[in-house]
């Protein structure tokens, strides 16, 4: 079939999640490269405007299962729908957002289909592969690229023998691109009863507390990010003041989140969000690969670090060698005098 299938995630307001539109944009390019179609699987309840939301991003076919049992998301009902559709339509590639939904669903499907799955890819490409042992050649397969081993290496993973080839991708990693506002496709309405089993209903959602706003660091044009070198949650307060002053948002490295300096909804990097602001100010961040993949496409990068050899300095446009607690107040002074 050569087709690419994207699992569409629906957010609390019943709209297609950004990460899914990003995957459709990427999926369109992969489908063009393979000469195949881009299909989107949507499992939900009474959703509106799917066509207007999905076609501009290059989707050819929307496979829509509409059933009250499919909202809110629960593993087993979604598993049965997506697993059944993959068996029927035999896509080459299936993509999922690396969210709390995609990372719950995709491995269960990979286990059932006994196919390969690579988590948190930072790039996807099509290419050829020769198996080193058997010498067998594979044409046009999916390269699933991700940092590994604490970010000290970047690995290219392939699943040559099994189909589909599956990957999860974090929000913000791929660019959301409208292919054509007026593009049209087709909708296939699925009969959910054909796929759902009685036992899929065994888990009950008792209550949900969703923060619809959340922190939008992805949309910020200036990010002031703190790392382990900030030293404490109190010192992070300084970053909020500075970010607020210059119209930016605060981000954090994983080390800072793990240390409890900052909440994980501000985490930038492979296991957080990928950002591309105009200006990125890295404060006390050493710059492990997993962090850099999440911010290296920023317009301008300023690094503030006591260590002149910190890896982040290599990708910075400006480096300031010094203690953040000394440098940030000086930058704030500088900004205030500049604005007067």
């Amino acid at each position: 079939m050569n087709s690419i299938l994207v699992y569409i995630e629906i957010n609390e307001s019943g709209r297609v999640a950004d990460v899914s539109l990003e995957l459709c944009s990427k999926g369109r390019r992969l489908a063009d490269r393979l000469g195949g179609e881009l299909e989107a699987i949507v499992a939900g309840s009474n959703l509106a405007d799917l066509e207007q939301q999905l076609y501009p991003y290059g989707v050819d076919t929307i496979l829509y299962a509409n059933d009250p049992r499919l909202s809110p998301y629960r593993t087993l009902p979604h598993f049965s729908i997506v697993d059944g559709i993959i068996r029927e339509r035999q896509p080459e590639v299936v993509l999922y957002g690396a969210t709390s939904v995609g990372r719950d669903l995709a491995p269960r499907i990979a286990s059932h289909l006994r196919c390969g799955l690579t988590a948190d890819c930072t790039a996807l490409e099509i290419g050829d592969h020769t198996d080193a042992k058997t010498g067998k050649d594979y044409h046009d397969i999916l390269y699933q690229i991700r940092p590994a081993f604490g970010g000290n290496i970047v690995a290219t993973i392939v699943s040559p023998e099994t189909r589909p080839q599956m990957a999860t991708v974090r929000e913000g990693v791929m660019r959301k691109e409208v292919i054509d506002e007026n593009r049209k496709g087709t909708v296939v309405n699925l009969d959910a009863n054909k796929y759902l089993r009685n036992e899929d209903d065994c888990l009950k959602v008792i209550s949900r507390q969703i923060d619809p706003q959340g922190v939008d660091i992805k949309g910020a044009s200036i990010i002031v990010a703190g790392g382990y070198g900030m030293g404490s949650r109190e010192n992070f307060e300084m970053l909020y003041k500075f970010a607020n002053m210059i119209g930016g948002e605060v981000g954090a490295s994983r080390a800072a989140v793990d240390a409890g300096f900052c909440d994980n909804d501000r985490q930038i990097g492979q296991t957080g969000v990928t950002v591309r602001p105009k200006l990125y100010i890295a404060c006390g961040i050493s710059g492990a690969v997993q962090h850099r993949v999440g911010m290296e496409q920023s317009g301008q990068i300023i690094s503030i670090n006591t260590d002149p050899d910190a890896p982040i300095n290599a990708i910075a446009d400006y480096t300031i060698i010094g203690d953040v607690c000394e440098v940030i107040p000086r930058l704030m002074n500088a900004y205030q005098s500049c604005k007067q």
């Binding site: 970010g151 000290n152 290496i153 690995a155 392939v158 699943s159 890896p311 446009d317 480096t319 500088a334």
Partner: peptide, 27 residues
């Protein structure tokens, strides 16, 4: 099913950057 095709160690190529002194004037 998944195979590691290749592993690249992370090599940083130094970007042309400007080292700003930590003084009020430079900042």
């Amino acid at each position: 099913p998944t195979k590691v095709k290749k592993v690249d160690s992370v090599v940083l190529t130094q970007k042309d950057n400007i080292c700003v002194e930590n003084t009020q004037e430079a900042l």
